[in-house]
Design a protein around this nucleic acid. Structure first.
Lengths: 198, 198
DNA sequence: GTCTATACGAAGATAGAC
DNA sequence: GTCTATCTTCGTATAGAC
């Protein structure tokens, strides 16, 4: 029942290193060093080794993002939430030399190797989509438009992060932010105008 | 001057394996086996080893995609090209058990390790964007809208491929296809109506 | 819980024969 | 050009002491 901060530090460090270098290129030694954790403790906290670490780091990061999305949507609405989240990732992209992307995508990408981590990534994406779609539906959009816009938002966001890393620039992320906000506003405006759209 | 098919086979195999398993998880032995290539020839064809192979495979795959985009836009227009390309990736996703994604993204993702491959990925994305934006602009959209839509299309496409892998389903890709076509049609219709839009 | 030491295997890369 | 053999490094994982 000890609230082992060491374990959580390792998960946080793992997630950060995955964002920057990918899963396969990150060794357990890297994680220990980054976390400043005791060297002999990894297999104590994660008996099943690296696969377990990858899965838990992905699942934890996905849940954190999910609660950020939920909280933002409840408090500030879709466009402001989008702005806040994209702004946060832009800052981290810039402050890490365009290496730190999404913490969930690495497991999705290199996930052939650890199916559990792949599943964790898939469930995270699905959960985000559900949350966003529900919020849009509550604001008057049809189910179909809500789903479509939610999937577009997450897809464009994930894709823009990859492109930003490759181009070593945030222009793709900037453009996606602008476009998404425009489309969201248009759709929500039309719904507020009394039509939930086709 | 010998047209070494062996070399090209290795590049093709490398690109395919990168799509399925990622760069770091793919060994040179994997590439040789997949290509059915002679074991002693890798360092003959790629003297600088794996980094060179990754860079060339990424660059080649990016150029191939680029010419598919160009040809499609010139012959069939934006929406049909989008449909064709997404359809092709959907087929490959399904026929590979949801493992084969974009051939350029892996280098962008795990690119911290080989800067040359990262650059190749970035240049590919930029080139695709330029091509698509030019086509949209030619059809009457403003420069800004052309750029915005082109970046959105590529971002959403790349993101949807990741999500599809993680969810082991093509629904994200399907939704992105529908949404993108809707937005493209709306923008192009408005431009055809005599207004290049704001 | 954390340590050191070590076993084991995988992978990149090189050397030199053919 | 292609082969085999080998070197070296690295990473996961385990064993057993403290």
């Amino acid at each position: 029942m000890s609230r082992s901060t060491a374990r959580e530090d390792m998960l946080r460090s793992a997630a950060m290193l995955f964002r920057e270098k990918g899963v396969e290129a990150t060794s357990l030694a890297d994680v220990i060093e980054h976390a400043g954790a005791p060297r002999g403790s990894i297999y104590h906290h994660f008996p099943r080794g690296k696969p377990q670490l990858v899965e838990e780091a992905t699942r934890t990061a996905g849940a954190l993002m999910g609660s950020m999305i939920s909280a933002g949507l409840a408090k500030n609405g879709p466009t402001d939430t989008l702005r806040a989240i994209i702004g946060g990732f832009r800052d981290q992209l810039e402050s890490t030399g365009y290496t730190a992307g999404c913490p969930v995508a690495p497991a999705a990408f290199e996930g052939s190797n650890s199916p559990a981590a792949l599943a964790a990534a898939g469930e995270s994406f699905t959960s985000w989509e559900d949350t966003i779609a529900a919020s849009l539906w509550q604001r008057g959009l049809s189910q179909q438009r809500s789903r479509g816009l939610a999937t577009m938002a997450i897809s464009a966001f994930e894709g823009a992060l990859i492109i930003a890393k490759a181009q070593r620039s945030t222009v793709a992320l900037d453009r996606v932010e602008t476009e998404l906000i425009g489309w969201l506003d248009a759709a929500l405006g039309a719904a507020a105008g009394g039509n939930a759209d086709s």
